[in-house]
Each structure stands twice: as structure tokens, then as C-alpha cells.
Simulated assay, not measured.
Amino acid sequence: MWSLPHIGDLPSKSRKSALDPYEYAVYQKLLKASAFNAILNEGDIPEAEPVELPEPLTCVIIPDSIFPDRSHPDVRIARRAQTISLLAKNISERRVSRGLRRTLLTQTERLNKLARARYEALDGVIEVEGAEGVVEEPEGLFPTIG
């Protein structure tokens, strides 16, 4: 989170235009840090002149009491799948933006990465059907995402 108290002092009509360059700077920063070259944002962030961001403020938002359960790989996979289901339901029921469809795509890529990592962590080998039965995954058949 980046605190910008000087913008809060501006008249309300001026705040949005004053925030735009900061929003774009944060968007660019997070996009570069993303393993998927995407962030989960339905709307498109308008391009703006670059600005320097202040030091971010960081904190933990998940209480220590539930963090171990929420961070378990199987729980993360289940929660991501539920999110994808809800997004797909929303998309099927109304006219949606291109950004929401992009969010669904990014969520599915994240689920794939989580599921693959969990499978491989449990010594799983991805197999494909070959001419002479089941064989191990050929090199490069399933490229790593991110």
C-alpha cells in the first residue's frame, strides 16, 4: 500500500487526476513483478506520466490464527478453483468487459501453476499416452508458466 496524504488535501474534483499517475506507476510495478505478466484488475489502467512512488507500507492482513490453514497448497487450489467458478458464472450471466475475461484467464493460469507445483511436490510425474503404453512426459510438452 502506498500512502499519498498530499492528494487527500486536494479538492475532490482534482483527486482522480492527481491519483492517475500513481495508479499507473503501481500498475507497472506490479505487472513487472507478476509471474504471469498480469494483475487481477477488471478495468484497464490509463497510461500516465511516470511518477516516483513513496516507500510502500506493508502489513499482514490474514490473522496468524488462520494463516497456516489458508496457505496450505490444497486449500489455495480449492479457493482458486472456487474463484474461477464464480467468475465464469458471472461471465455467463451478463455482458462483461474484456478485463473480466482477462481476469478469468489469469486466474486459470494461477490455478494451473498451483496444481502443477502441488502435483510435482508430491513426486508426481506427468504422463502421456505413447505408442507402447504410458511414458514419462517429453521435455517441454508442458512448459512452466511464469
Rank of each mutant, 00 (worst) to 15 (best):
Y24N: 15
V134T: 15
L105C: 11
K29L: 07
I39V: 11
E49K: 10
R98P: 01
K32Y: 09
K32G: 15
N41T: 08
F36L: 13
Q28N: 03
R101F: 03
L4Y: 15
R70S: 09
I91A: 13
S65D: 11
R116W: 01
A48F: 03
P138F: 03
I45V: 14
L19G: 05
L30W: 05
I77R: 03
D44K: 14
T103E: 13
V135S: 05
L105K: 14
F36M: 11
E127A: 07
P50Q: 08
E129S: 11
G124Q: 04
Y119G: 10
I91N: 11
G99C: 05
K29R: 08
P46W: 01
A35V: 00
R76S: 13
R110A: 07
Q107T: 02
D44I: 12
N90P: 00
C59K: 00
H6R: 08
Y24P: 13
H6F: 04
E47D: 07
L30G: 09
L53S: 01
G124V: 04
R116G: 02
G140N: 06
L105V: 11
L19Y: 07
L31S: 11
Y22F: 11
R94V: 12
D44W: 10
N37Q: 08
P73C: 00
Q107L: 02
A117W: 09
L19E: 13
H72K: 12
S97W: 02
L104P: 06
L104K: 07
L57W: 09
Q82Y: 10
Q82A: 13
N112F: 07
E120L: 15
A35Y: 00
D74C: 07
E42K: 14
R94T: 15
A117H: 15
E47M: 10
G43N: 10
G140W: 01
V51S: 15
P50Y: 05
L19V: 05
Q82H: 13
R70K: 04
V134N: 01
A131Q: 14
E136G: 10
P46F: 03
L10Q: 08
G8R: 06
P138G: 03
F36I: 11
Y22D: 08
T58G: 03
L122A: 02
E129I: 10
L57E: 15
S34C: 08
L114N: 15
Q107G: 05
H6K: 09
G43D: 11
P50T: 06
Y27Q: 09
P63S: 13
R118K: 01
E49W: 01
A115D: 05
E132A: 02
D9F: 10
V125Y: 13
A88C: 01
G99W: 00
N112S: 09
I91L: 12
A121M: 09
E132S: 02
K16P: 11
L4A: 15
G124Y: 03
E93N: 09
P5I: 00
R116D: 10
E49D: 10
E127F: 06
P54H: 09
G130P: 04
Q82F: 09
R110T: 06
E49L: 05
P68Y: 06
L4E: 12
D9E: 14
E136K: 13
E93Y: 00
H72I: 02
S71K: 08
E137I: 02
I84H: 02
L87Q: 04
E132V: 00
E132Y: 00
T144G: 06
R15W: 05
T144E: 13
V75M: 07
R102Q: 06
T58P: 04
L19P: 04
L19R: 09
